[in-house]
Write a protein that binds this DNA or RNA. Structure first.
Lengths: 199, 199
DNA sequence: TCCAGGATTGGCCTTAGGGCCAACTACGGC
DNA sequence: GCCGTAGTTGGCCCTAAGGCCAATCCTGGA
């Protein structure tokens, strides 16, 4: 299996459920870390580690939706699968609108949970890939001088050096220099690559 | 209001509900068209007309999810808001995963429905905007000759005429001609515009 | 006060892209 | 057999982009 060894964070206050789901997920090849409360999970949570979360909706203290809101508002994209015994429709809809991967009712069917985990991990991989791409671009943009950033915007818009010079109140030769340095720093060789990178 | 006059398709087998919601939506400035069954709605449905659908989950014959599946499988992006009196969580989750805008329980709160309609119409506008853009690009791609399409791919990838010539087994001069004709047909003047268009 | 980084400009030369005119070849139809 | 479309190629010329070397000018700091 492709996701074998990926981490599944399990948050449920019922120890029997934790044992049961841990067993199920471990057997499927996942590494499981379980927590009995939202607070315990969040305080040990490292967004940098790939994986997904399987969260019981009703928890003592902060509940499952609270975990989701906390993660969402802190820009953490950890995919969440909710499981619940007592949920209602409005809650499930709110969870899904907030980006939950799935919302399962107890007793949880093994196949449904495993399928949801696969989807969640897929989404996590995709999110991380895109996040890394953005990071790379941001890092490169960060080392540009203000002038180079201006030139970048014009070049990406398809403007000619001569036109850019006019807009920025300088001469073509100067733009050529800024442009060349900007392209080096952005690590692209063609305008096409540049446009794809910053779009 | 920005969406005033937009069409809301209402599908519910209960005439009192239809009356009630029609009144609510009309008062808010929307044009409402109501249907008593999925079959009636679908047979009169024109995907080209902007708007959203408010659909009761339980209907005689094909139910609300059936409408959604029908539209989704025929690539129609009509935004759907479900309303239901007897739904369960798995159903609401399935609807949301299939792209429903919202899933409301009866009795429907006026504010919740109106808010959902605003979101649905926003999504519709966005979907149509994107669809038109794709249409435009497709139309232009359609009038390219096979050779021009090949050249387009290479140009968008940032390759030089000389390299493209090598790859396509011809000389640079020929590529220049294909390239110029391709750029005209795609209605772009710079490589940057081309990349943005086909990405 | 002197230095580094950033912005600027000039000259020179090479490569790349694109417009215009002309011409040839191949193929599918009428 | 003639015609239109698609693909090809050549020549000529001009503009755009980019590399290399050199040289100011200014400003925030050490």
């Amino acid at each position: 299996m492709a996701d074998e060894g990926s981490i599944v964070y399990l948050v449920d206050d019922d120890e029997r459920i934790r044992m049961s789901l841990t067993r199920l997920l471990s057997t499927a090849g996942y590494v499981v870390r379980s927590y009995a409360s939202a607070e315990d999970f969040l305080s040990h949570h490292d967004p940098a580690i790939p994986g997904c979360a399987v969260v019981d909706l009703s928890l003592p203290g902060m509940d499952g939706l609270g975990i989701q809101q906390t993660l969402v508002s802190s820009q953490v994209k950890r995919p969440i699968i909710f499981v619940t015994g007592y949920g209602d429709i409005p809650t499930s809809v709110r969870a899904m609108k907030a980006g939950a991967v799935d919302f399962l009712t107890k007793p949880v069917e093994a196949s449904a949970l495993l399928s949801a985990v696969v989807h969640a991990l897929d989404r996590d991989v995709e999110t991380r890939r895109e996040g890394e791409r953005k990071q790379t671009v941001e890092k490169r943009l960060a080392i540009l001088t203000p002038r180079e950033r201006q030139v970048l915007a014009h070049v990406a818009a398809g403007r000619l050096n001569k036109q850019i010079a006019g807009d920025l109140g300088t001469v073509e030769k100067t733009i050529k220099v800024h442009r060349a340095r900007m392209m080096r720093k952005m690590e692209v060789r063609t305008v096409a690559d540049l446009v794809r990178l910053v779009t």
